[in-house]
Simulated assay, not measured.
Amino acid sequence: MSQLIQLSANGQASIVADEWTRVVPPAPAEESVRKQAGKVVLFKLTGEPTFTPEQIANTQIPASGKILVPLTVWQARKAELESRLAAGELGIVLATHETAEALQAEFADLNSLPIIAIFVERFADGRIFTLGAWLRTRFGYKNELRAIGDVLRDQLFFHKRAGFNSFLIRADRSAEDALASLNDFSQPYQGGVADVPVWRRVNRA
């Protein structure tokens, strides 16, 4: 069964079939243990390389169909992928340690991308929420914005408020349960991408 939850134009959520194939580079030959302040780092830091040149070169890209490719794969193999973009068959996966500015540098109009997916390797901070909100507000992105990777039930309501309109639930979790979580709260207090803080919604006149 599909693990993809998608919001319709009127905000209704449902579990739908996934039309997009995510392209994942092969695992590195060896991966060193990274530490910060003496502790093992289990997620990538901003500015850290996403994939090695060998991984990018060895990435297998399907010859047809809709594909989601990592930003670094697009950057290195743009010539062979431009026709897929023109056909509306290419979307970009942006990791949480990558920046919206790096994505914009590759696409003068971000809305030429039918979908942008933000990948959480391991949830440890709020970078996915920042990226989602910035893509919607600062960069004017209007198409499908998808959360993928370590996406959990308790986060969906807040992903939605940060501008995401589709969510690929982790394979070991229930998509039906995650779908219900979008109704966990009836009236958020803080402002979000599509609304204002509750105190600004009250007529005090």
Rank of each mutant, 00 (worst) to 15 (best):
Ala87Gln: 13
Leu7Trp: 13
Tyr141Asp: 06
Arg161Leu: 12
Thr46Ser: 13
Ala57Phe: 00
Ser181Ile: 04
Thr130Leu: 05
Arg161His: 03
Ala57Glu: 12
Lys160Asn: 04
Lys35Thr: 14
Ala95Ile: 03
Leu85Gln: 08
Leu168Phe: 12
Asn143Tyr: 02
Ile169His: 11
Ala175Gln: 07
Ser166Ile: 00
Gly163His: 06
Phe157Arg: 10
Ala117Asp: 05
Ala175Asn: 14
Ala147Ser: 11
Ile128Leu: 01
Ile116Ala: 04
Thr21Ala: 11
Glu101Trp: 07
Gly192Cys: 15
Phe51Met: 10
Phe157Glu: 05
Ser2Asn: 15
Leu152Met: 15
Lys78Glu: 13
Trp199Ile: 04
Asp184Leu: 12
Val69Met: 01
Phe123Thr: 03
Arg22Phe: 13
Glu80Arg: 05
Glu30Val: 14
Gln155Ile: 02
Ile116His: 07
Lys142Asn: 11
Leu131Ala: 11
Ala133His: 08
Phe167Met: 14
Phe158Ser: 08
Thr130Phe: 05
Thr130Cys: 08
Ile67Val: 05
Gly91Thr: 08
Thr21Arg: 13
Asp150Ile: 03
Ala37Asp: 10
Thr99Leu: 11
Leu7Gly: 03
Glu98Thr: 05
Glu106Ile: 03
Leu81Tyr: 14
Ala171Leu: 12
Ala105Leu: 08
Leu4Asn: 11
Ser83Lys: 11
Phe119Trp: 14
Ile118Gln: 04
Arg173Ala: 08
Ile169Gln: 07
Leu4Val: 15
Ser83Glu: 12
Leu45Asp: 01
Glu176Phe: 09
Ala63Ile: 05
Leu4Arg: 14
Ala180Ile: 08
Leu135Lys: 10
Asn143Ala: 07
Phe123Tyr: 15
Arg173Asn: 02
Asp109Tyr: 01
